[in-house]
Structures are given as C-alpha cells and as structure tokens.
C-alpha cells in the first residue's frame, strides 16, 4: 500500500444530488428559488426541495462556495411529523453515501478504469476495487 486517504463528502453537483435522490426514491423539485417550508409557516429558499409527505420540507441550498447545504426544521417539524427515512441523521447519511458512490462511479467511467469488484459490506459500507486497464 502506498497511501490511505479519508474524504468527507461535499455535495457540489446539483445533477448528481438529484440522481442520488432519485435512486433513493425521494420526491423532489428543482428550481432557482424554491420555498422550503419550516416552523409556523416560515420559509427558506433552496435549489432542490425534497417532499417529505408532511408540512415540512428538506431543502438543499447552494452556498457561496458552490457546495450545497441541507436545510430543514430538523429538530421540531421533521422530527415530529416526517417518516423515519427523513430524520436528519438517517436522511443525510443515505444521501451523502449515494452521492459519493455516484461520484466514484462517474470518475471510474470518465477515466476508463475498471471496477474489479463491488460489494456492500455487513456494516453497510460500499466497497469498490478499481484498477487501470492493462
């Protein structure tokens, strides 16, 4: 082994984020300035809004550096009204993992690399072994 790197997922590609949401079977809308419903009728704006099936939404808001942050009334509205798959830790964990997986697959394709092996480990991690073509 020559090196080992730990990486934190940062959402930067809106299309890839939407693909991740689609693969996770979440309903969402895309737009430049969509309303994210929060506590007592308050709203924020976001570029991607996930419909949670209750009166509170989850939004992905573009930041000054081009990355996307998730915004929602996690501690009150989402916790009380939304289904378990929308609870903050679970929802963000699933979206980040799916986004990272799509990012890796896209890079593999773009560089013409070969996925030698891909599997889901017992702890839920996705493992890929990637090599250069001979």
């Amino acid at each position: 082994m020559s090196h080992f790197t730990k990486i934190r997922t940062v959402i930067r590609e809106q299309e890839r984020l939407c693909e991740a949401l689609r693969e996770l079977h979440h309903a969402f809308r895309q737009g430049e300035s969509l309303s994210v419903r929060g506590y007592q009728g308050s709203t924020q704006t976001a570029q991607v809004v996930v419909q949670t099936g209750c009166s509170y939404d989850i939004g992905f808001q573009r930041q000054g550096d081009g990355s996307y942050d998730a915004v929602a009334d996690w501690d009150w509205g989402i916790r009380r009204e939304a289904a378990p798959q929308f609870q903050q830790d679970r929802f963000l964990a699933e979206v980040n993992q799916k986004y990272a997986h799509l990012a890796v697959r896209a890079e593999v394709r773009e560089r013409g690399f070969i996925v030698e092996e891909e599997r889901v480990l017992e702890n839920g991690e996705i493992e890929l072994v990637v090599c250069e073509p001979i």
Binding site: M1, S2, H3, F4, T5, K6, I7, R8, T9, L92, A93, E94, V95, N96, Q97, Y99, A100, H101, V104, E116, L121, N123, G124, E125, I126, E127, L128, V129, V130, C131, E132, I134
Partner: peptide, 26 residues
C-alpha cells in the same frame, strides 16, 4: 497492477487505499 480500494461509509465518509504504486505518483 495499480489498484484503488474505495470504501464509502454510511454518511459518505470515504476511504481510498492505493495498492501497487511506488513513489509520490500514487
């Protein structure tokens, strides 16, 4: 052969482990 072992954790924490490469080119 150059290989990357990539693990994507729950939450998107990812580790990349490189095998079969010597020198800083890895």
């Amino acid at each position: 052969m150059k290989k990357m072992r990539i693990r994507i954790g729950k939450g998107g924490k990812t580790t990349v482990q490189v095998e079969g490469v010597t020198g800083p080119g890895c």
